Simulated assay, not measured.
Amino acid sequence: MTDAWEWDPSLYSGSAGYYARGRAAYPPELAEAFVAEVGLDGTGRLLDVGCGPGSLTLLLAGSFEEAVGLDADEDMLAEARRLARDANCRWVHRRAEELPAGLGRFRLVTFAQSFHWFDRAKVAAAVRGMLAPGGACAHVHATTHEGVEGSVPRREIAELVQAYLGSVRRAGQGTLPAGTPRGETEIYRGAGFRGPRRFTVPGRVVTRTVDEVVAGVFSLSSAAPHLFGARRAEFEAGLRALLERASPAGVFTERLGEIAVDVWEP
């Protein structure tokens, strides 16, 4: 991520309604692994930072007294509230950089496909100070919008997006020519964390419809609906035509990659 790029509220503008439909849900096995590996027993509190529509928050909420999902996108939180129903969740509209924000202490803080959007050193330091005795931070490595192999024509979809938006990755009002930053290990250790201790959950095969694949594309910051402007309907029509050519039956299968979780202790 270049020094010139700055977060702005349009990063996922228009994507919230597509996110839960277009991305594969985290499997129950991930929640079971968290219980076994972190020793969750229904006590304490969870903070999911950059929670989006609550994909991980809702999966883990039952293992805590309270789950708090924090996100900078109000539309994402509205979708999370809709999906949560009676879950023991609280939703907070704030940027991660505003932590600790008076939210208290937590047994577990999670980052799932979100850490790269933040001022990572600042957020990691804040989170370390928010952990209760014996608490931990978990960084979830996962890709839920696409698989590692399958029948979805991913290369053709990427080419179509580039035909409309250009070859340089878009992100909000800016661009990310080199993609999002890596090297989170150094960031966590620089903030005083020890580790990581890693556990994994195997990938699985999922089936997707045309509507779900389209939703998955619009769930990406690099293809958020607002980026297409007045050509959004034209792009979607072209995307659907591409998918219908690839599968007249309108059904696709993909094998998702494994999910890896790094557990960091203060």
Rank of each mutant, 00 (worst) to 15 (best):
M1L: 13
T2Q: 09
T2V: 02
W5R: 00
D8E: 13
D8I: 12
D8N: 15
L11A: 14
S13H: 15
G14H: 11
S15H: 10
R21Y: 00
R21F: 01
R21M: 01
R23C: 04
R23P: 02
F34Q: 09
F34H: 09
F34V: 05
V35K: 06
G39K: 05
L40I: 06
T43G: 10
R45W: 01
D48T: 01
D48E: 09
G50E: 03
G52T: 06
P53Y: 07
L58T: 06
L59G: 03
A61T: 00
S63M: 05
F64C: 05
V68P: 03
G69K: 00
L70R: 04
D73F: 12
D73T: 12
E74G: 12
A78E: 11
A78H: 11
A78S: 12
E79G: 09
R81E: 14
L83T: 07
L83I: 10
R85W: 03
R94M: 07
R94P: 06
R94D: 06
R95Q: 13
A96Y: 05
E97K: 08
E98Q: 12
E98M: 02
P100V: 04
A101Q: 10
G102E: 04
G102N: 01
L103K: 01
G104V: 01
G104T: 06
R105E: 14
F106A: 04
F106E: 04
R107Q: 02
R107I: 06
L108N: 03
T110M: 01
A112V: 11
A112W: 03
Q113W: 06
S114R: 03
F115Y: 08
A121Y: 09
K122P: 01
V123P: 04
V123G: 04
A124T: 09
R128P: 07
A136P: 04
C137D: 01
A138Y: 00
V140F: 09
V140L: 15
A142V: 11
T144Y: 12
E146C: 09
V148S: 09
R154A: 13
R154W: 15
I157T: 07
V161N: 07
A163E: 13
L165E: 00
G166E: 03
S167Y: 15
V168A: 11
A171I: 10
A171V: 11
Q173R: 14
Q173Y: 12
Q173E: 10
T175Y: 14
A178E: 15
G179M: 13
G179L: 10
G183P: 04
E184Y: 15
E184T: 14
T185L: 15
Y188T: 11
G190N: 13
A191F: 04
G192I: 12
F193R: 02
P196W: 11
R197D: 12
R198T: 15
R198Y: 14
F199D: 09
F199Y: 11
V201G: 02
V201N: 06
V201K: 00
R204Y: 08
R204N: 00
V206H: 02
R208N: 09
V210G: 10
D211I: 00
A215W: 01
F218K: 03
F218C: 09
L220Y: 04
H226E: 11
F228T: 05
A230Q: 12
R231G: 06
R231L: 13
A237M: 07
R240I: 06
A241Y: 01
L242D: 05
L243E: 06
L243R: 09
L243Q: 03
E244K: 14
P248E: 07
G250M: 05
R255V: 13
L256M: 13
A260D: 08
V261K: 01
V263N: 10
W264L: 08
P266Y: 10
